[in-house]
Computed example of a mutant assay.
Amino acid sequence: MNDMKKRLARLLMDLSYREGEVTLTSGRKSDYYFDCKQTALHPEGSWLVGMCFLDLLGKYDIQGVGGMTLGADPLVSSVTVLSHVEKRPLPGFIIRKKSKGHGTNQYLEGLQNFKPGMKVALLEDVVTTGGTLVTAAERVRDAGLEIAAVISVLDREEGGRENLAKAGLQLDSIFTRGELLEAASR
């Protein structure tokens, strides 16, 4: 495991990982909560997340990245800025929870940077069941983009990968819960 990933694991554990019973978006109960925004909005955390995402994205043939607001907003911003710095430019888009309701009535913001048929990766902070990502993917496909991959900071390993596969989506992650706990303990 590289040094950046180890540093990210420690920062995630310090800022984003909390043990204790919580109810997740899916309605499931869990013995821990992972609030990635705390790390993704931290200066070093944003850089580390963006660099780790860029590393994973290197194995995919993509022309851009996007994700569902609010969780993916700092992830998309980090990747787009760092992709420019690294001379591997990837424009970004944000998927609204509800259509705009006026003007173009669109779900996706940032589409001027894309052409129909372009391959993109969806970025996500945490994957539990994958339900939110399946909805997001439908909106991206409806906008004419092709999804080459779904990349998350954390895969909780609670059925999300399998549910996404059923929807024709491939999940990759920086960490699974077990990998995060192990990396942070080193």
Rank of each mutant, 00 (worst) to 15 (best):
M1A: 14
M4Q: 14
R7M: 09
L11Y: 11
L11N: 07
L12R: 02
L15K: 15
S16V: 04
Y17V: 05
R18L: 13
T25L: 05
K29Y: 03
K29T: 11
Y32M: 10
K37Q: 09
K37P: 03
T39F: 02
A40W: 05
A40C: 10
G45C: 08
L48I: 08
V49F: 14
C52T: 12
C52Q: 14
F53L: 05
L54D: 01
D55K: 15
D61V: 04
I62K: 04
Q63R: 14
G64H: 01
V65D: 00
L70C: 09
L70R: 08
G71L: 01
D73P: 03
L75D: 00
S77P: 04
S83I: 04
S83V: 10
H84A: 12
P89N: 08
P89L: 07
L90S: 03
L90K: 02
P91W: 03
R96W: 03
K98L: 15
G101S: 13
G101W: 11
H102G: 08
T104S: 14
G110N: 10
P116A: 11
G117F: 01
M118W: 07
M118I: 02
M118G: 02
L123D: 01
T135M: 11
A136C: 12
R141Y: 08
D142M: 13
D142K: 12
D142A: 15
A143K: 04
L145C: 07
L145W: 05
I147V: 13
V150F: 03
S152M: 11
R156V: 08
E158P: 07
G159R: 13
G160M: 10
E162M: 10
A167Y: 04
A167S: 10
A167N: 12
G168C: 12
L169Y: 01
S173E: 03
S173T: 06
T176R: 04
R177W: 12
G178D: 15
G178R: 10
E182G: 09
S185I: 06
S185L: 12
R186V: 15
